[in-house]
Amino acid sequence: MSLKAIYKYGSPPNFYRFAMKLEPWCFSLGVFLIVIGTIGGLFIAPKDYQMGDAYRIIYFHVPSAYLSMSAYAAMGFASTIGIVWRSTVAFSVAKSIAPFGALITALALITGMLWGKPMWGTAWVWDARLTSEFILLLLYLGYITLHASIKEQKRADRAASLVAILGIINLPIIHYSVVWWNTLHQASTISKIDAPSIVGEMLWPLLVMIIGYSLFFSAVICRGGSAEVLMREKRSKWVKEI
């Protein structure tokens, strides 16, 4: 990617126009797919012969867990672009991802607990995936608090982005070490329970939900990110012309 392209498409007015055009499409399609996926998952998909109806929580747990990680990856990516090219747009996008990511991580944890209670008989196990999800939440909270506690906008952007990049470097190491710790501590407990292999008619609502969540996420980022861009460009000419 050449520098010129980044300046052209990453310039605040262009991003604003693009995001505002994209947002209604993402939002309506995302909501539509989420509704379809919900109906499919709750009512159409067959009952699991082992777990009964409770497995249907998976249609809400897996998309949020998936999104919590990819949102962090997106935040780290945007932060890297922001640090390297000093791009206002990238900083705005990274900042608007953070609260959404923290909420969706909390959602993944809570739905995971609601899944664990009937399935495993306990809401929390010291399982590798649960623990790294919790640490992911801490990383998000660190980003948000750091950004909120530095008054000056530009410095806050760059400092918080540095933390996000460090988190991206560290996330695989954290995950690996937690997995390693977990295998040594409880080799043969309930942590070995995996999601059972899913067959076609159970799978399609899940995929629809994941795509719907991602589109919804894009819509939120378009809204929040463009609001952040406007905030940072308050004094410039193009903002006053809108």
Partner: peptide, 23 residues
Amino acid sequence: AITLGIRYPGALMTLIITPITLP
């Protein structure tokens, strides 16, 4: 270094440092 400009950085430092140090 990253929390230099903040007046009471104690809790924030803990929040940033804990996930990174965990491994």
